[in-house]
Nucleic acid binder design. Sequence first.
DNA 1: CCAGGCTCTGTAAGCGTTTACAAGCTCGTT
DNA 2: AACGAGCTTGTAAACGCTTACAGAGCCTGG
Lengths: 348, 348
Amino acid sequence: MSPCSVADRARATIHDVATLSGLSICTVSRALRGLPNISPASQLRVEEAAEKLGYRASSAAARLAGGKTGHVAIVVPKTTAWFFAEAVEAAEEALAHGGLDSVLMSLRGREHVKDALFRNPDELSERVDGVLLLGVNLDPVQLEALAASKLAVASVGLSDVPWDNVGIDDEAAAWRATRHLLDLGHWDVAILAGNEPSDGTVRTAAHRQAGFERALDDEHLETDPDMMVCTESTIDGGYRAMTELLAARRRPAAVFSGCDEAAFGALKALREHGITAPKGVSVIGIDDHPMSSFLGLTTVSQPVADQGAFAATLLAERLDNPELGSPPQDHRLPTSLIERKTTRRARH
Amino acid sequence: MSPCSVADRARATIHDVATLSGLSICTVSRALRGLPNISPASQLRVEEAAEKLGYRASSAAARLAGGKTGHVAIVVPKTTAWFFAEAVEAAEEALAHGGLDSVLMSLRGREHVKDALFRNPDELSERVDGVLLLGVNLDPVQLEALAASKLAVASVGLSDVPWDNVGIDDEAAAWRATRHLLDLGHWDVAILAGNEPSDGTVRTAAHRQAGFERALDDEHLETDPDMMVCTESTIDGGYRAMTELLAARRRPAAVFSGCDEAAFGALKALREHGITAPKGVSVIGIDDHPMSSFLGLTTVSQPVADQGAFAATLLAERLDNPELGSPPQDHRLPTSLIERKTTRRARH
DNA sequence: CCAGGCTCTGTAAGCGTTTACAAGCTCGTT
DNA sequence: AACGAGCTTGTAAACGCTTACAGAGCCTGG
């Protein structure tokens, strides 16, 4: 009975495991990492010894020798928006499940942070093995540099990227939302469209606007420029956009907002004009923000956590077998219309 | 003109810096870490060489040799709540500023995750140098284990912990909110109190309830048990609690909610009973959730980002000079009343 | 019986830092 | 003129793991 059996003062090293199992360090290392060419007997002895010692490899040492950090960067524009918070949480869980630590990197809307990060990805690759991009808008140069680096990459919500991406079909979602308005008999539909740089990897707003236009086009309806207003994807943005819309001479019968948060702002603006959706104006959004059910907003929901988790899993898999040369894929998760209280049939 | 000056293929090592500066590895190491006993001249030469080579120490190697990872764990119950998302963002920024990488660890409400993390902090200390606890409720055993470990610790929103903590004066904030209701002439005040285990490190709800009671006590008012209802700190929780309250025979003149989100739910429940605050019932919360201004909720605001950033800074400082034996402190940041549209003077 | 090919295992050389410890200098003292 | 204190700098040994590479058995086929 040694004086200290469990929780020995100093961590057990691979050396201790080797001694206890009567094998060499090298054999232990291989056994523990599941490499081939190990006799079942040795494998077992190593496992038993490791178990008994409560051995856990030092990631620092492993990194130094083998070049792996066991860390993945989760990069987001900010953590404070609902979408990102949700996606980060799910991604972190999936990565932890794969034995990976998540290093959070928030851009906080500062271009220079993004630049520092992606301008030379070699610096980044010293810190992490892979990068998970959540709605991060890379310009062509940054995209190129990242793709050329040795980092494994996966993303959520990007377009046309040379790595695994997970998202929804934004165009289809917007089409569905607009279609719903049309089906209710509203012919005079306005859009609160998001505005974002068009040369980057994030093209959500553009796709949603395209879906809106296609739905109108299906009905051979013109898209009236007066009925389209660009806005930031925030409550305030939606509020201002809707106010602007109401200032125009014609009031729309229904409003499609590119995102729920802007729809909240729109609802507020309407209320201040004495209009309570769906009376007078129907309103629909996209996202299914947690506040939406509270406010009764009709919307097209998207599975945010699923997207984060899925992308993280794909990344973890690539990291596990880097040689695996399957081409990067673009995955589209399903969305669904949720009817609540801000839309109703038109009274002609 | 070497063929590749900037962004050389292989990272520059400390060796390269030593060669370029004409000094030894050891001197370079010391200079770079700001240790004393370095001549200004050498210091300068090292810095120039490092700069020129774009040198950045390998955290893995540093960790292996020196026992430092350059990583800090940010632990939160979940990232998806506004408070935590905000605090995490600010903390990450502050830590990054100090050259530290933030490893995000979300408990996601799973006790076993927390247990695995804190039951033996030695495992944790192999991965990170320090831990930043954001509203994490540790039981006495976990608290003990963490305090005994060699990890540096700082926290936000905890009570009676043996390390630096940052928070607000919850009792005072609740007192202020309740006082506001009283000042408006509402004598019949109800409270939507949070419920949380009472033996942990998080005692926000208890303190807020205490503040409420003290305010009433100041006026020699009894706290009617019927006017106190416990709830989860969520919209749904507030909704249910308010509904319950309204089912009782006496309707309160005003409601103090321990947090804004519960107040949202309360507002909804009131509306469904045909009551629109402040008509009939005044409502006040604590937090200043972003939705609060949208909904016009009167509340006592707290500086969330500041708390996260402050705690992170304190942690980074401890990490920088570990010997620095200043005793841990408890810092209280100021709150302030924000009057909006859900409270108004009573009409007696 | 032996060459040649397997499979399994061990040796030893790093990986890029940190850190005792020792060595070399410069001064001020005696 | 010599000695030691006080700075500054260099040497070399870890730190715990991975990985070429070499070696030891063992089997198969000619």
